[in-house]
């Protein structure tokens, strides 16, 4: 559960899951990144969900950080469990979620999205170029 929605993260994209520590904001505008945390002696950027298309609105506290392989921490509200395969009927998102998710569908009767780290990183790079 992240940014108020159900989210699937492919395990091969996941480096680890860690308890969230205080985030230090960056000393300048940085759309898409809310700051950094120190992780294994290095700075790790933390995603700002609120800056992503389709994620506006108040966000709940996130006690967990899912660290993706491209060294990006994604704030997570709750870990719900594992699914073996993508549920049937999931399709390529047609809305603005397309910028960071590669599939969308229903999970336990709720709308959910499959986070695509490559799309997400490309989106964050675009934000930087536009700044």
């Amino acid at each position: 559960m992240a940014a108020g929605r159900h989210l699937l993260l492919a395990t091969q994209d996941l480096r680890e899951v860690v308890a969230a520590s205080p985030i230090t904001p960056l000393p300048g505008p940085s759309k898409g990144i809310q700051g950094v945390v120190l992780h294994q002696g290095e700075f790790l950027p933390v995603l700002a969900w609120g800056d992503l298309p389709g994620c506006a609105g108040p966000l709940a506290p996130h006690p967990v950080l899912a660290v993706l392989r491209p060294r990006l921490a994604v704030p997570v509200e709750r870990m719900l469990g594992l699914v073996d395969t993508l549920p049937e009927g999931w399709v390529e998102p047609e809305n603005e979620t397309h910028a960071w998710a590669s599939a969308e569908g229903a999970l336990d009767d709720l709308r959910a999205a499959l986070l695509d780290p490559e799309r997400l990183v490309n989106l964050l790079r675009r934000f930087r170029l536009e700044a």
């Binding site: 230090t24 960056l26 000393p27 300048g28 120190l38 290095e42 700075f43 950027p45």
Partner: peptide, 25 residues
Amino acid sequence: LRSLPELARIPGIMGGSPQEEGILW
């Protein structure tokens, strides 16, 4: 000094150094 990863780079900032009062940029 530790450099910032690509996604957290800010123009004018070379990197950061953790200090008692927080990160010194």
